[in-house]
Amino acid sequence: MITRLTHMNIYVLDQDSALDFYTNKLGLKVIIDAPMNKDARWLTVGTAGQPGFEINLTLVHESLLHSRDTADVLRELIKKGTFGVGIFTCTDIMATYEELKSKGVEFIKPPTKEFYGTEALFKDDSGNWFSLAQLTPVNV
């Protein structure tokens, strides 16, 4: 029986820039930042309210997982905003939206009322997009 999701990958184009975006702009905490080789490091971040869940900010690079061609294609797709990665929830979307906007986060949709709550869409520094949502209690 599966009980928890503990790690998920977000492919990023630059780990230094991603670290700045996810911590200084989104306000997530670094869980592990350990260099592995000259090109990449194991870099995970998480939200304060969800201990035990780590987001791996994974550098797109040539590896057993991706050939050079695949890595090149993946980089282009990320830059184009192909991937919707997930939903971050918050307790007050207008305050969170105002704060993130003041820190320079690019929103592609402002807070809008939907049947499940209020939702905005933003992009990370690589081009991945997320929903920022304040869900109505029935969905929380």
């Binding site: 592995m36 990449a40 994974t58 590896s63 057993l64 997982l65």
Partner: peptide, 20 residues
């Protein structure tokens, strides 16, 4: 641990796929 044996912090399924 991070400086002496960083791979002990990484699930090996990931470490293998990334060639570490």
């Amino acid at each position: 641990q991070k400086s002496e044996s960083p791979l002990t912090l990484v699930p090996h399924c990931f470490a293998y796929q990334y060639g570490w």
